[in-house]
Amino acid sequence: MNSFNLITVTIISLKGAILLSLKLFLIIVPLVVFYEFLKRFTFFEKSGRGLDYLMGKVGLSSRAAIPLFTGIFLGIAYGAGIIIQGAREGSLNKGETFLLGLFLATCHAVVEDTLIFVVIGGNGLWILGPRIFLALTFTFLLSRLIYYFNHRT
């Protein structure tokens, strides 16, 4: 690649990078504002018990709900604002943070990721099913393990 091409590529990609940053910014800022309002009006405390029960099955508390559901539906990159902030403020302990990360690493942005492959001819059931199964199984098993180590005498 000659130097002329290198300059062209850099300029074009810089434009792309700025556009992508703008997109991230436009998605993250409103989401965080929304999150602050939910928090201010104690939505999380109110929605508490049922959610606590379900999430307890995979070793998470409702404190991790917002980063978890943002990640599952919006994805790690776009949900980043809420994931980073929610995880930092939610006073999650080390184990819980790793469980959240483990769940999201295997299972996130499920709607978009699945649909784009279905559109070009993939089988959605086989693309999404194993991801949900792996996320639930792994988080469940690891949370039992953490529980076991924390409670052995």
Binding site: I12, E36, G81
Partner: peptide
């Protein structure tokens, strides 16, 4: 609440944008 949302949103966007720009260019 609104202002806090904007401030925190900006802060986290910046954290990400600092990584996105150099890697995007490098990969291109």
């Amino acid at each position: 609440t609104f202002l806090r949302g904007i401030r925190n949103g900006l802060k986290t966007s910046l954290i990400l944008i600092k990584v996105v720009i150099p890697f995007y260019i490098l990969i291109s």
